[in-house]
Design a protein around this nucleic acid. Structure first.
Lengths: 335, 335
DNA sequence: CAGACTTTTTGAATCGATTCATGAAGGGAT
DNA sequence: ATCCCTTCATGAATCGATTCAAAAAGTCTG
């Protein structure tokens, strides 16, 4: 075949393969004259390194994989954006895997990543059944950092946002606004983030005597929000406010409400979660719980490289950020 | 190290490495009894195939890379979603690379992908200077399909949407609505999609005697739309409508106009491009030019595998889809 | 039971880059 | 001329899976 290997370059430049390798990896160890001759041959032949061979020898790839629940969710793209600079400046290559909130897809990704002997992993697990697979990778010496998921009992580094507290913030805000009957929209409840946000919400509702209606959805996207609204509008005693497990769900709900002529916030207030860029631009600017998305990614990457650098003597760190309430029109005071 | 190789499995099962390989790749060629013994050993040792070694031997990886201008743009995530099922069902692995509309980033990705000997490539090139790099890959026998970019003079398969026509649709719609002075917002103009959409728009404006103001932006995102509006509001003779090169720009513009108390569509109409999900959910539901996003991806993947399958005797195909006007509130009749 | 097949298993060769012990060449200093 | 150092270049060994010609083990026939 036409693929040129180092051997071809070596022959063309009249040197050994070892020297060609040195030109590529430690150019300072090669005499000026030889180096330029080899580089000329490389250019001449259009030689391109074969990464598989390199990896095989090295035993590891340079790839850091980021496994997220939904690439179409701006929350995750921002997390990835936050992680990228650090990874790339460390000579790594970023690859993004979308589990689509599906354990099977997640597992397939993990299998492939393990076969690829990736350098490390930043992962937001789909749910608790992911744990055994994650332990497996970890047991095979693939360092990983859990993202947006307090490690809790898992022996790993992690970065997370206090979702229980975020849930409290949202519920408290709605209670302060005088809502006595609210809806929680999100799911599946196996997703830890959903469960935590709900937990915080319920805690406050009980404390403040607010009635809580739960709409469990199949996913955390536009369609889920729309469907939940359809269901809710059928009720005789309708909640006066909704707390959606993320902004996509909230935007879907907002759209459906608007379509049905329900005024937001007058007839139904909405608060989302994540504060993605679209939230502020929505039909009615959306109140939300902001998470430090980019910083989450950046810190995760940092922890990963710390772990890689420290090797065996590494002790895991768990970083928790606090969320912040961003109040906008969608929960403006009823008056 | 702890990494177990096929040799270890072979020893544990009391067979040769060739047999282990067969169990993994052509199980039907191995006697039942031997097969189960080997599989037991694999499970026992927690053996995981080393993909680098496999690829080295095979000469090619199973990865199909999709190089997009902006992963945070729902347009592209939808294109990727459209391509994925076909790629995965063909045994491929999808990897998404974000060029961020930056030729240098794009080039770095292409270098890495070439070193990885990827199976194929779906790419939306940043601009025409990308061409030489693309030819290089192609010359090294990496099949590729241009996405959202009429191949024109390039000898490649491609799927595209007729952007010039899309530009016409938008401009015609605004002209029909009685606008006599409109703004085109988008950039950089080196991006072919931007240039085409503009070309169609200008054509119609000249034909219909509509004054056209151009705001060239540095990118196609939220911030670009906001900045363009700031600029526009400074003008003494302000356009009565904006055609934004994509929906993200349009949503940014919409947000900025609303913040400045400019009524949409009464004081300034807006039409975007792509018709992403967020468009319909915007502050004022956004008129847009719809592209068949998922189908674009699906068809691209199809063409790629056709090319891989047909090998040398392959003739390139260029598929062009037609865009469609979606009129919503942001361009509702002035009355 | 020899001979002719068929079914399984073997193990050496191969892919291409990296590494490293070894040696060659060049430069001073004596 | 000899010895010691430094600077460069060499090429065989290695990583782990796949492939395939050839050997081994089984099956069937007459």
């Amino acid at each position: 075949m036409t693929t040129t290997s180092m051997k071809d370059v070596a022959r063309a430049a009249g040197v050994s393969v070892g020297t060609v390798s040195n030109v590529l990896n430690r150019p300072e160890a090669v005499a000026e004259e030889t180096r330029t001759r080899v580089q000329a041959a490389i250019a001449e032949l259009g030689y391109v390194r074969n990464d598989s061979a390199r990896q095989l020898r090295a035993g590891r790839s340079r790839t850091v994989a980021v496994v997220v629940l939904d690439v179409a969710n701006p929350f995750f793209t921002d997390v990835v954006r936050g992680a990228e600079p650090l990874i790339e400046s460390a000579g790594g290559v970023v690859t993004v895997c979308d589990s689509g909130e599906d354990v099977r897809r997640e597992r397939r990704h993990l299998e492939i990543l393990e076969e690829q002997r990736v350098l490390g992993l930043l992962i937001t697990p789909v749910d608790d059944t992911s744990a055994s697979w994650i332990e497996r990778l970890s047991g095979h010496d693939i360092p990983l950092v859990l993202v947006d998921r307090g490690a809790g009992r898992h022996p790993h580094c992690s970065v997370a946002v206090d979702d229980v507290h975020g849930g409290r913030l949202a519920a408290r805000h709605l209670a302060d606004r005088g809502h006595a009957r609210i809806a929680f929209v999100g799911g599946p409840s196996s997703i830890p983030q959903v469960a935590d946000r709900f937990a915080g919400c319920r805690e406050v509702c009980e404390e403040r005597g607010v009635a809580l209606e739960v709409f469990t959805t199949a996913g955390l996207n536009f369609a889920a929000g729309r469907e939940a609204v359809e269901q809710m509008l059928g009720l005789e005693e309708r909640p006066t406010a909704m707390f959606c497990a993320n902004d996509l769900v909230a935007l879907g709900a907002l759209q459906a409400l608007t379509m049905h002529g329900v005024k937001v916030p007058q007839e139904c207030a909405i608060i989302g979660y994540d504060d993605i860029d679209f939230a502020a631009a929505a039909a009615v600017p959306l109140s939300s719980i902001r998470q430090p998305r980019a910083q989450l990614g950046r810190t995760a990457a940092q922890l990963l490289f710390d772990e890689i650098g420290e090797g065996a003597g590494h002790t895991h760190r768990n970083v928790v950020f606090q969320p912040e309430l961003i109040a906008r029109a969608s929960t403006a005071q009823e008056s």
